[in-house]
Design a protein around this nucleic acid. Structure first.
Lengths: 203, 203
DNA sequence: AAATTCAGCGTACAGTTGTTCGCTAAAAGT
DNA sequence: ACTTTTAGCGAACAACTGTACGCTGAATTT
């Protein structure tokens, strides 16, 4: 039996998390967010914050974890749609763009704190991106029959392009986002082509 | 004749600029920098700050301009070394990596404020990167004989890769930086190859 | 039924922030 | 020689920050 007490605690914990997420915007970084602001938005006394997190940093790391979780969902979603057939690259890019427009706050957090002040943050985010990259590497190695070193380099390039394009797409309208998506697709194909010729030469 | 007064003013203005730059580090964002901290570091009363800049934002934009200037120097430097012959890609990447290790503070500023809270900052930085990109586009169009649309997309991809790799390289040792440089070179060649096959198909 | 735990609160404090205002002394202009 | 300009200063302000402390009342345990 989950006590009514524990349930309530979890509830205001979520309130804090959501309060933080809601405040994130093009005009507000997570690191520019104060404990008091977050507590206010969550309808809680500033001092009560400490019942749930030691620090703002701890809250932030929780958010990064959430972001990672969402990214994994993204991957699962891709794999499923891929099974139905279609261009791998197009589907992946479209799903990614959908993700950032639906989870813009979380994605913004990742982008901002990737070059932020906390080493712990940066490392946590690097880990999430690394995970992303290694899944892609495996795919290229297994499905596309690339030697591992090439697969890794190609995956790295692709992830860099996609995240960078995502960053630019973040604050744009749906139409502009679609345009960036198209360009990104071409760029990824460019990379795939180049990688392919390299593979042939290597043999 | 430049009055001794104007000269002194310029001097403390530089002191402010340098104070800001010196404070930037992996642990300190520009936007986390307070007017008073900067004034303190520059050995100036907080209130005197306003004799030189209206805002911290105005100081920041000045720094971005400086960064842009340094980037242009970089481009000129590349062109010169290119005239001496050698791999375009290798030379460009190596010069870029040199740049970020010698101007790490400025580059960090660009990276951080690119996804920061001030629209004006973001736009100023986007402009600098755009400039970079368009130079590369022209080169690819003229020298490599690519159709303009392809040149632009390829340039965009390359700039994304290079800046992203630069961001990762920022806090690494010289050896690690060299490793990233090598990988980046391969990735850029990959893109160039892919772009080439696309050009041939297009004809 | 009594004792314990604990999420949430209000008060309080010291520290930092951006900015206003009026002053000074030296340089520049006349 | 005079007046004007102006870079730099110190004091003062209200606003905000993070956090320590002790209390309360309800949920939980005994």
């Amino acid at each position: 039996m989950v006590g009514i007490r524990a349930k309530q605690k979890e509830k205001t914990r979520r309130a804090l998390i959501n309060a933080a997420l809601n405040q994130l915007s093009p005009q507000t970084t997570f690191s520019s967010l104060s404990l008091r602001e977050v507590a206010r938005e969550a309808n809680i006394a500033p001092t009560s914050f400490y019942r749930h997190f030691q620090n703002m940093d701890e809250l932030g790391l929780t958010l990064v974890d959430e972001a990672g979780l969402t990214l994994r969902q993204l991957l699962r979603q891709s794999r499923q749609r891929l099974a139905d057939g279609g261009s791998v690259i197009r589907i992946s890019v479209e799903i990614f763009m959908d993700f950032i427009s639906q989870n813009s706050s979380v994605f913004r957090l990742l982008l901002q704190e990737r070059s932020g002040t906390s080493k712990e943050f940066r490392m946590a985010i690097a880990r999430e991106i690394e995970h992303f990259k290694s899944e892609l590497t495996d795919y290229l190695h297994a499905e596309r029959d690339l030697p591992e070193w090439l697969a890794e380099i190609q995956a790295d390039a692709m992830v860099r392009i996609v995240f960078s394009a995502g960053a630019d797409a973040l604050d744009l309208t749906a139409a502009e986002r679609a345009a960036i998506a198209e360009q990104t697709i071409i760029q990824l194909r460019m990379i795939a082509r180049g990688s392919d010729t390299m593979k042939k030469e290597d043999k």
